[in-house]
Simulated assay, not measured.
Amino acid sequence: MSGKSLPIFILVILFAFIGCEEVKKENTDETTSLSMDIEVERKAILETLNNETKAAFERDYDAWQQKWVHDQSITKTYLNFSENTFSESIGWDEISQFVKTFMEEHPEPEPVPDSLEKIDIRLYGNGAWVTYEQQDSLRGLKRETRLMEKVNGDWKIAGMQTTIYGFDTNENQ
């Protein structure tokens, strides 16, 4: 390398290191910001899920329906292994009617499950895929999957699948 090329080479290497450091700082800040946003969204989603469950168990249709997307493409599915039953409702009108009928046929409130604290969540812009387990005092273990959409700044339910496993009969033996 000639005497003139060496200082240029050193400058190129120096700028490369400085450039890499700047990219690293930008990515670090972005990651930190993204992590904080996930926690904010997680708390908001937990609030929606817990309030929707509370409203359903307390038979408060008006509060319950505010937590749902009112669209004809949403779904609500129950698989109950302990009773060997299945139900599926598609679209807001059908889901709404199913819940209204259930509340009319079972007007007595049920014990509200403990509030959710632990959920697995994947955020996709204004959407989220949420899974969790919950213990229901009347039905036993439930695994739930919820598709959430952010509508006008509020998280709402756009899809629900509940699998009810019941109580573990081996616990009593």
Rank of each mutant, 00 (worst) to 15 (best):
residue 86 F to A: 14
residue 109 P to T: 12
residue 101 T to G: 05
residue 123 L to S: 09
residue 81 F to S: 14
residue 102 F to I: 13
residue 43 K to D: 07
residue 24 K to W: 05
residue 77 T to W: 07
residue 97 Q to S: 08
residue 37 D to C: 14
residue 162 T to P: 04
residue 28 T to R: 06
residue 73 S to V: 03
residue 71 D to P: 02
residue 136 D to Q: 03
residue 74 I to T: 08
residue 150 K to M: 13
residue 62 D to F: 01
residue 72 Q to E: 11
residue 150 K to S: 15
residue 93 D to K: 00
residue 64 W to K: 05
residue 81 F to K: 15
residue 95 I to Y: 05
residue 64 W to D: 08
residue 30 E to C: 01
residue 138 L to P: 00
residue 136 D to E: 07
residue 90 I to N: 15
residue 57 F to G: 10
residue 119 I to D: 15
residue 139 R to S: 04
residue 84 N to G: 12
residue 45 I to H: 02
residue 160 M to L: 06
residue 19 G to E: 13
residue 14 L to H: 11
residue 33 S to W: 12
residue 10 I to V: 09
residue 73 S to K: 02
residue 70 H to T: 07
residue 158 A to N: 13
residue 141 L to D: 10
residue 169 T to L: 15
residue 123 L to A: 06
residue 111 P to C: 04
residue 83 E to P: 02
residue 126 N to E: 15
residue 147 L to S: 06
residue 144 E to Q: 10
residue 60 D to N: 06
residue 126 N to T: 06
residue 149 E to R: 05
residue 111 P to A: 10
residue 90 I to H: 08
residue 140 G to M: 03
residue 110 E to G: 01
residue 35 S to H: 13
residue 35 S to N: 13
residue 145 T to C: 05
residue 43 K to T: 09
residue 49 L to D: 06
residue 106 H to Y: 05
residue 114 D to P: 11
residue 55 A to C: 00
residue 39 E to Y: 12
residue 12 V to P: 08
residue 60 D to L: 01
residue 171 E to H: 11
residue 45 I to N: 05
residue 39 E to N: 14
residue 20 C to I: 12
residue 37 D to G: 09
residue 103 M to W: 06
residue 58 E to L: 08
residue 10 I to Y: 02
residue 143 R to G: 03
residue 169 T to C: 11
residue 109 P to S: 07
residue 162 T to R: 03
residue 19 G to K: 06
residue 11 L to V: 09
residue 140 G to L: 02
residue 36 M to N: 13
residue 77 T to A: 09
residue 84 N to C: 11
residue 3 G to V: 05
residue 87 S to E: 10
residue 57 F to D: 14
residue 83 E to I: 03
residue 117 E to S: 06
residue 160 M to S: 11
residue 152 N to A: 01
residue 124 Y to C: 14
residue 15 F to G: 10
residue 100 K to M: 04
residue 100 K to Q: 15
residue 116 L to W: 03
residue 165 Y to V: 01
